[in-house]
């Protein structure tokens, strides 16, 4: 038995602040998830609790239990704007109808512009932003297509959204076709 000396560095006090915040808020949020629908049913008001519950879920998911993988700026932007649009859609559908078809596409093309800016400025590796940007662009095109076939006409924000996403798709396909093909192959692999 030779002299194998095993030693460890001195203790550095672990910060439990986030852990305690999470533990406390977990119970507050669980309470809210139960209380909101109950109050909503008792008062008989429009379904505001759906919007509230989704908000609670979002705060938990994004700030207190975030994804461990791929939490880059593009993914944050994607999650944040997806949530904002879903919340807006719910408010428009459940609480205050009439303006949704105008506001949602404005949010959509603003998001696309922001995503392009993020794509060129924040990503260390350009290919990391390809799939989120491509997903947003295709989702926008599908949304515009669905609205057009459903209503037979498009508001100006919808036209802007459709044009912008089409331009992005064409330009992106020309500039990054090799990277896009490679990223899609990786993204959709089944092995």
């Amino acid at each position: 038995m030779n002299d194998l000396i095993i030693s460890y560095p001195p203790v550095t006090k672990a910060s439990l602040f986030l852990h305690r915040v999470r533990q406390t808020l977990k119970w507050v949020f669980i309470l809210a998830l139960v209380a909101c629908p109950v109050l909503n049913i008792i008062t008989g008001a429009p379904a505001w609790s759906v919007v509230a519950v989704l908000g609670v879920f979002f705060v938990w998911k994004v700030f207190l239990s975030p994804d461990v993988l791929e939490r880059g700026p593009m993914n944050y932007l994607f999650t944040f704007t997806a949530f904002a649009m879903i919340e807006t859609a719910l408010i428009g559908l459940l609480l205050s109808p009439g303006w949704l078809g105008f506001v949602l596409p404005i949010m959509g093309f603003s998001t696309l512009i922001l995503s392009v800016l993020f794509f060129y400025t924040t990503s260390k590796r350009r290919q990391d932003g390809i799939i989120p940007l491509l997903s947003q662009t295709i989702a926008a095109l599908i949304a515009v297509g669905v609205i057009y076939f459903k209503d037979g006409e498009l508001s100006w924000p919808m036209v802007v959204l459709g044009t912008l996403s089409l331009v992005l798709l064409v330009m992106g396909s020309i500039a990054y076709h090799t990277t896009i093909a490679r990223e899609i192959r990786k993204y959709l692999h089944t092995r």
């Binding site: 460890y8 560095p9 550095t12 993988l69 880059g72 260390k124 590796r125």
Partner: peptide
């Protein structure tokens, strides 16, 4: 890096690269 904390703590693999 110089060892400072407990062994086998989670890696921060959230960001790209």
């Amino acid at each position: 890096s110089k060892e400072s904390g407990p062994p086998c703590q989670p890696l921060k693999i959230t960001a790209a690269g």
